[in-house]
Amino acid sequence: MHVDEWLQAIPPLWICALVGLVIGLESLGIPLPGEIVLVSSALLAAQGVVNPLWVGICASVGAIVGDSIGYAIGRKGGKPMFDRLGRRFPKHFGPSHIAKAERYFERYGMWTVFFGRFVALLRILAGPLAGALRMPYWRFLTANVLGGIAWAGGTTAVVYYLGRVAEKWLKGFSWAGLVLAVLFGVVTTLLVKRRAARMAAQEAEEPAGAA
């Protein structure tokens, strides 16, 4: 069963609560599919199953609260905590992941927390790592609140309105139009992934060049 099918079996109020909970736990530092749950819930909102405003509010609150708890945990546990997590969960907290996230913090500071919302790796690490690196809390909180609202609220709004437009569009076009839309989406995704891979390669080359 897909996530959206599973969500449809849940009452609307519980969908909003679940969105906030999953995103909050992910922001706290637990690897969960927060973005998938958010997008699926926004699509359900486009179908009239749940109110999009409450999806966005719950997602934003979950993101902000989860990141704040993650910050407190990271501040208390410090970098040794990431060493322990790296040994237990190398796929998500391995030395290479932590080192890459630290480079982002060194280069961009509080903007890492803001834009980290839009990157899967940083969405998990931003809060705890900001605490471990002793980022001033007021700077973290500012970036956390703005980033949480921009990512959670923005994603909900974009997916909701795209879903509404797509539903009307598909009613007036043939299956050929649907196929073209899918192909366009696949090509766009591949181009974005290629661009991301290039950026990752450049990030990897910079430390080597500096050495």
Rank of each mutant, 00 (worst) to 15 (best):
E5R: 12
A9N: 12
A9H: 13
I10W: 05
C16Y: 07
A17S: 10
G20F: 02
L21I: 08
L21S: 07
V22C: 00
P31M: 09
P31Y: 06
V37H: 01
L38P: 03
S40I: 01
G48H: 03
V50K: 08
V55P: 00
G56P: 00
C58T: 11
C58K: 03
V61N: 05
V61I: 15
A63C: 08
G66S: 07
G66L: 05
G74D: 03
K79Q: 15
M81C: 05
D83I: 11
F93H: 07
G94W: 03
P95I: 12
K100P: 00
K100M: 13
E102D: 01
Y104C: 07
G109R: 07
F114R: 03
G116D: 00
L121A: 11
I124Q: 08
L125I: 13
P128C: 04
A130L: 03
R134T: 12
T142K: 14
A143D: 00
A143C: 03
A143Q: 01
V145L: 10
L146A: 15
G147M: 05
G148R: 09
W151S: 04
T155L: 13
V159F: 12
A166M: 10
K168M: 09
L170C: 08
F173W: 13
F173E: 15
L180K: 09
L180D: 11
L183Q: 08
G185V: 09
V186H: 09
V187C: 12
T188W: 14
T188Y: 14
R195L: 12
R195W: 15
R195A: 13
R195D: 13
A200P: 02
A201E: 10
E205V: 02
G209C: 08
A211M: 10
